Simulated assay, not measured.
Amino acid sequence: MSDAVHAPAPASPARSAPPATGRRRGIPTRTPHQVPGRGRMGGPLTGIPWALPAVLLVGVLLVYPFFRSVYGSLFEDNGFTSSFTGLDNYTRLADDPIFGRSLLNTVMWVAGTLLLPVAAGLAIAVATHRMRFGRLAQLVIVLPYAISGAATAVLWKFILTTDGALNEVLRAVGLDSLAQGWLLEWPQNTLSMIVASTWQATGLNVVLFAIGLNAIPRDTVEAAELDGAGGWRMFRHITLPQLRAVSVVVVGMAIVNSLKAFDMIWVLTQGGPARSSETLALTMYREAFRLFHVGYGSAIALVLSVIVVASSWMYLRRQMPGTSAPKS
Rank of each mutant, 00 (worst) to 15 (best):
S83C: 01
F84R: 06
G47L: 11
T91M: 06
L62V: 15
M41E: 03
F80H: 07
N78T: 11
F84W: 14
L87Q: 02
G79V: 12
A51V: 10
L45A: 11
I48P: 02
A54P: 01
G47D: 06
S69H: 06
W50P: 00
R40T: 12
M41K: 09
Y64M: 07
G72Q: 08
D88P: 00
P65I: 12
D77N: 15
L61A: 10
P44T: 04
S73I: 07
P53D: 03
L45E: 01
G59T: 12
L45F: 13
S82L: 04
L74M: 14
N78P: 00
T85F: 09
Y64K: 11
L52N: 04
T81H: 11
P44W: 14
V58S: 06
P49R: 10
G59K: 12
P36K: 06
G47K: 07
N89W: 10
N78K: 10
Y90E: 00
D88H: 13
P65W: 11
P65Y: 13
R68Y: 15
V55I: 15
P49Y: 05
V58F: 15
G47V: 09
L52D: 02
V55Y: 10
V63K: 10
G37F: 10
T85I: 15
M41I: 11
G86I: 11
Y64A: 12
G86V: 11
S82Q: 14
P36F: 12
P44A: 10
V60G: 09
L87R: 07
G86W: 13
S69I: 05
G39P: 06
N89Q: 13
E76Q: 13
V70T: 06
F66V: 13
L62I: 09
F66R: 03
G42M: 03
Y64T: 12
G72W: 06
F84D: 00
I48V: 15
V35Q: 03
G43I: 04
G86M: 06
Y71L: 10
V60R: 04
F80Y: 10
Y71A: 11
G43L: 02
L87A: 13
V58N: 03
V55P: 00
L61H: 04
L87G: 13
F80D: 00
D77A: 08
P49E: 00
L45T: 04
F75C: 01
V55S: 03
